[in-house]
Amino acid sequence: MAGSMGRALINFPPKARKGDVIEIRTLLSHPMETGFRPDSYGRLIPRDIVNRFECLFNGEPVFACDLFSAISANPFMAFTMTATQSGELVFRWKDDTGAVMEEKRRFEVE
């Protein structure tokens, strides 16, 4: 476990043919505290959001984005990739506490 990040659900077709466009879906558990909410004493709760997500395939970037305050807790992201060869997908999330969470998955092309 890293910072407020707990678990990630990652979903994509286990196997694909060369040239197929596959959809990759990720769901990360994170409170995404906006920084605008007061606690019961009226003090602002410090912002703690995932501010960067990236996905790499064999070291090459597939998808990356910056995230901001208006994104719900447990952010869900879906994007596509063209299947070219078998290899390793790396998913990386970074939050405001500086914590980084990384998940790796094997992807097979028939």
Partner: peptide, 9 residues
């Protein structure tokens, strides 16, 4: 869909 249902976390 268990891949999108946030309760699955």
């Amino acid at each position: 869909d268990d891949a999108t249902n946030p309760a699955m976390l």
